[in-house]
Nucleic acid binder design. Sequence first.
DNA 1: AATCTAATTGATAATTTATTTCATTAAGGT
DNA 2: ACCTTAATGAAATAAATTATCAATTAGATT
Lengths: 145, 145
Amino acid sequence: MIKNTIRAAQEELKRKGYKLTGPRKAIINYLAESQEHPDMQQIFAGIRAEYPSIGMATLYRTLGLLLELDILRAITVKKNQLRYELKKPGDHHHHLVCTECSQILEFGSCSFKHISSEIETVTRYSIEYHNLEAYGLCPQCQATS
Amino acid sequence: MIKNTIRAAQEELKRKGYKLTGPRKAIINYLAESQEHPDMQQIFAGIRAEYPSIGMATLYRTLGLLLELDILRAITVKKNQLRYELKKPGDHHHHLVCTECSQILEFGSCSFKHISSEIETVTRYSIEYHNLEAYGLCPQCQATS
DNA sequence: AATCTAATTGATAATTTATTTCATTAAGGT
DNA sequence: ACCTTAATGAAATAAATTATCAATTAGATT
Ligand SMILES: [Zn+2]
Ligand SMILES: [Zn+2]
Ligand SMILES: [Zn+2]
Ligand SMILES: [Zn+2]
């Protein structure tokens, strides 16, 4: 539900004491509505459509902030190639990344949740979130090799 | 076993048709011997100690190559802050990363192996490797907050 | 062991990406 | 409507990454 995702992100910003500004709203809206996993260039271009005055620095700052607040997730496709997605409340999934064409596919089963608390006990870390990416070849790239 | 790690990495290079050059050997040696998870700057400084003529470009190229060959793993500590570790034959582990001080702790239990082949069946991807990082606060940073 | 060939290297330049600065704007509280 | 301060955007600056290319060298071939 896109509306919920947007609202959750906005509320989290306010809850932590940040202002809900035009640029931030535009970025959150764009991310919430994008079905793929866009990179920074795509996001920048996309935002400009409905918020033409936005500067690059603001986008850097905002993505950094959303990551810190754990509202946003970055997926490493290749070295220094990140793709982004807004976290949806109630959803938890991970990603398959094709090492050939960089296609991203989501999968819902998470095996980490079960061992998370045991790892917390053993290591004394307090775990806030986790990322899991599996890398390999997508069906198309398997065919053409 | 450091010796084995070095040999495995070297053999993989040769097996794939790459030359075993001085710089590559130095980089592999450094990585194999480093117990922490160094970043590029640390690696560069460390290599220079025993291979002073190495250029930055070669380090970039070599790290990229080792990543491609799945000999090397990159751990995302923060946005655009990577740490590296050579994969050891017979070893498989994942990482806890402190979001405050960037300390990295390894943990051995991998929950993904069990579901990997099922995901391959369902998605038709062929999975070659995976990365899992859990983020949170290390014991020290929990104390000072 | 000397020769050959193509991959690799290192210095530099060029490019791209990210951050800092700072005057201006605007969000949210009063 | 006003005030305070966080946030923005443009530009400058800095940092990271990649491209270029002559010189070197690993590994194969005599
Ligand atoms: Zn996703
Ligand atoms: Zn998970
Ligand atoms: Zn490790
Ligand atoms: Zn694993």
